[in-house]
C-alpha cells in the first residue's frame, strides 16, 4: 500500500522524462476517472442510465470560470469555488432527476441525453440579451489554482527539482481522486449504497421493503452530479479556457463507455475503464505512426484514422470477451454465471 503510494506520488517525475505531455494526459485521465466514478453512482449503483452526464461537468466548469476569471471580474479562491460548483451541479442533478423519476431504461436515457444537450445549448447561447456565459466564444483567462501565492500554472524549482504546472495539478488531482474513491467505497457498503442496489435490481420490491425510492434516486443523481461538478471546476482551472464545445454529447458517451467497459458497479473496474479509455488513444497517438513505418516501411493508413479504428475495434472486442466489463461487480458476475448455466 505504502509502495503504491510512493509510486503514485513519484509518477509525474517519471512521466516528465517521457515528456510533460504525459503528465497532462495523466491529469486528464484522472479527471475522467472522477467523472466515471461520479457516473458510476448513477449508472452502476442505482442503475439509472444517464447519457447527459457531461452537463454536470459543464456546470462545474462554468461555475469555476465565472467566479474566477476577468469575465465578471471575480477572482474567488479555488477552495471556495469547488464546493460551490459541486453544490450547483448537485442542484442540477436534482433538477434532472425530479421530473424523470417515473421513467425507466431507454426512456430515461433519451431524456438525460436531451438534458445534456439543453444545458450545452443554454451555455452556448446565454450571451444575449444578457451576457452570462459569453456564448461560443468561451471564457478566457480563468485563474489557475494557487496556494499561498504559489501558482499552479507556472514552473517552479523546488529543492533542485523542476516542478511544472501540470505536476502540481497532478498531486492535487491525486488527493481528490483518493478522497473520491474513499467516499465511493464507504458509500457502496453503506445503508444508502444497499438501497441503491435494491432500486437497481427491482424498484418495486425495493419500495415494498420500505425504501423511499424517490429520495434515494434523487440522492444518486445529486451525488453523481456533484462529483461531475468538482471535475468540471478542476478542468476549467487546468485549461484556463472553456467553451461549450468541450461539453458535447460525445463526452457523455465516452464516460458511459468507461463505466460499462470497466465494469459498472465495481469501483476498481470503473477506474480501470476510465484510465484505459483515456490512455489508449494517446498511446496509439504515439505508436501508430512509427509502428506502421516499421512494419510496412511507409504509411498505409493515416495515423489519426487508424487510431480511431483501433479504438473502435477495441471497444467491440472488449465487450465481446468481457460482456460485464473488465472487472465486473460481484452481483453482475453472479448474474452472468447464472444465465450461462
Amino acid at each position: 500500500m505504502a509502495l503504491i503510494g510512493i509510486v503514485l506520488v513519484a509518477l509525474p517525475f517519471a512521466l516528465s522524462q517521457a515528456g510533460t505531455a504525459w503528465v497532462r494526459i495523466t491529469n486528464l485521465a484522472i479527471l475522467f476517472t472522477l467523472l466515471a466514478l461520479g457516473l458510476n453512482i448513477v449508472v452502476g449503483f442505482a442503475g439509472l442510465l444517464d447519457l447527459g452526464y457531461v452537463a454536470f461537468y459543464a456546470v462545474g466548469a462554468y461555475a469555476y470560470a465565472l467566479l474566477a476569471s476577468p469575465h465578471f471580474g471575480l477572482h474567488l479562491p479555488f477552495w471556495v469555488i469547488l464546493p460551490i460548483g459541486a453544490a450547483v451541479a448537485a442542484l442540477f442533478g436534482v433538477l434532472l432527476g425530479a421530473p424523470t423519476l417515473k421513467l425507466r431504461g431507454d426512456y430515461l436515457a433519451i431524456v438525460t441525453l436531451g438534458f445534456g444537450e439543453i444545458v450545452r445549448i443554454f451555455l452556448n447561447n446565454l450571451a444575449r440579451p444578457v451576457n452570462i456565459t459569453n456564448g461560443p466564444q468561451g471564457i478566457t483567462g480563468i485563474d489557475p489554482f494557487s496556494i499561498s501565492g504559489v501558482s499552479f500554472a507556472k514552473t517552479d524549482t523546488f529543492m533542485g527539482a523542476m516542478i511544472s504546472g501540470p505536476m502540481k495539478y497532478y498531486w492535487f488531482l491525486l488527493v481528490v481522486l483518493v478522497a473520491v474513491i474513499a467516499i465511493n467505497l464507504r458509500l457502496q457498503n453503506s445503508r444508502i449504497g444497499r438501497a441503491w442496489e435494491a432500486v437497481r435490481e427491482d424498484e418495486t420490491a425495493a419500495r415494498a421493503m420500505g425504501i423511499d425510492t424517490t429520495q434515494i434516486k434523487l440522492l444518486a443523481f445529486a451525488m453523481g452530479a456533484s462529483f461531475g461538478g468538482i471535475a468540471g471546476g478542476l478542468f476549467a482551472a487546468i485549461q484556463g479556457f472553456i467553451s461549450p464545445e468541450s461539453f458535447v454529447l460525445v463526452e457523455s458517451i465516452m464516460v458511459v463507455a468507461m463505466v460499462v467497459l470497466g465494469g459498472m458497479g465495481n469501483i476498481w473496474g470503473v477506474i480501470l475503464g476510465a484510465l484505459l479509455l483515456s490512455f489508449v488513444p494517446e498511446i496509439l497517438r504515439y505508436t501508430v505512426e512509427p509502428l506502421q513505418k516499421a512494419v510496412f516501411g511507409r504509411m498505409i493508413v493515416e495515423p489519426e484514422v487508424l487510431r480511431m479504428l483501433i479504438f473502435g475495434f477495441a471497444l467491440v472486442l472488449v465487450m465481446l470477451f468481457r460482456p460485464a466489463g473488465l472487472l465486473p461487480s460481484a452481483v453482475r458476475k453472479r448474474e452472468l454465471a447464472e444465465r450461462k448455466a
Binding site: 431504461g105 458517451i253 475495434f313 472488449v318 465481446l320 460482456p323 448474474e335
Partner: peptide, 23 residues
C-alpha cells in the same frame, strides 16, 4: 454474441461499431 450479456454491453459495441464505420 451479446444477446445474454448485461443490457449496456451492446451499447458500447454499438459505439465501437459507429466509430469503426465512420472512419
Amino acid at each position: 454474441p451479446l444477446r445474454r450479456a448485461p443490457r449496456l454491453a451492446p451499447l458500447i459495441t454499438a459505439i465501437g461499431v459507429s466509430i469503426i464505420l465512420q472512419h
